[in-house]
Amino acid sequence: MNTKIVQYSAPVLLVGGGEVDRQVLAAALPTAGRVVAADGGAAQVLALGRMPDAVYGDMDSLSPEVQAQLDAGVLRAIPEQNSTDFDKCLRHIEAPLVFGYGFLGQRLDHQLAAMTVLVRRADRRCLLIGAEDVVMVCPPDLSLDLPTGTRFSLYPMAPVTGRSTGLRWPIDGLTFTPAGTTGTSNEVDGPVRLTLDGPAMLLILPVACLSALLAGLADAPGTWPARG
């Protein structure tokens, strides 16, 4: 079983088997130095004429016909059933940033599982990009320049506190929990700065904010440590 790490000094493109805008993915693939697929996501990459550098998963969604199209050494089966294919991929990628396509949309249970993995692997900076939204775990400190009125949603996956400027409803003094206070449908009213006290807050922005988010991440001073 070959499960070696994909290591790259620039962002890595990760493709799942869920809903993907083919035009968006086709535009992203040529700019990606490394492309990884999660199980059935390999079919979407191959269909656009790109050979993935690695395919991780239990291979229950990848037909023998598609597997036969993969170059030697690309298929890296991980048969255990205790983690999702997204988790299998993310823990085997070492890169400054991962762009994830094909993990949002369609099945709600798959989306919830992906959100859990984002928090579990918060040391791996990953953006999940869908048709409407981009989602990531908030880093410890993040500043963003977004248009006034932009939808700005925060959702806690565990108890977490923080501070903010530039939001219509500041988060200072609040304790967020999944079953208590959440921060969805907030709005930008100036230059945004967020500081979070733990790796448990999801940031959800309109996909049109992707460039602004990348600019903010380029200046973000730190990342969360790996879980023990």
Rank of each mutant, 00 (worst) to 15 (best):
V35S: 00
V35T: 03
V35D: 00
V35E: 01
V36M: 04
A37H: 02
A38Q: 03
G41W: 15
A43P: 10
A43L: 13
Q44A: 15
V45T: 09
V45L: 12
L46E: 13
L46P: 09
A47M: 05
L48V: 02
L48K: 04
G49F: 11
G49Q: 01
R50M: 02
P52Y: 10
P52A: 02
P52E: 05
D53Q: 14
D53Y: 14
A54V: 07
Y56H: 00
G57T: 05
D58E: 07
M59D: 01
S61I: 09
S61T: 12
S61M: 12
S61D: 10
L62Y: 00
S63A: 13
S63V: 05
S63M: 03
P64K: 09
P64Q: 09
P64N: 03
E65I: 00
E65G: 01
E65W: 02
E65H: 06
V66F: 02
V66W: 06
V66N: 01
A68S: 12
Q69D: 02
Q69A: 04
D71R: 15
A72S: 08
G73V: 09
G73C: 10
L75C: 09
L75K: 10
L75A: 09
L75E: 00
R76L: 01
R76S: 07
R76K: 12
A77T: 07
I78D: 11
P79Q: 11
E80N: 08
N82H: 08
S83T: 11
T84E: 11
T84N: 05
T84P: 07
D85E: 05
D85G: 12
F86L: 13
F86N: 06
D87R: 15
D87W: 15
D87N: 15
K88H: 14
K88S: 15
C89F: 07
C89L: 10
L90K: 12
R91Q: 09
R91T: 07
R91I: 02
H92Y: 03
H92M: 05
A95Y: 02
A95E: 03
A95P: 09
P96T: 09
L97Q: 13
L97E: 11
V98D: 08
V98K: 15
F99H: 13
G100W: 03
G100R: 07
G100H: 12
G100V: 03
G100M: 10
Y101T: 02
Y101M: 14
G102Q: 00
G102F: 00
F103Y: 13
F103C: 08
L104T: 08
L104K: 09
G105W: 10
Q106V: 11
R107H: 06
L108I: 04
L108C: 04
L108M: 10
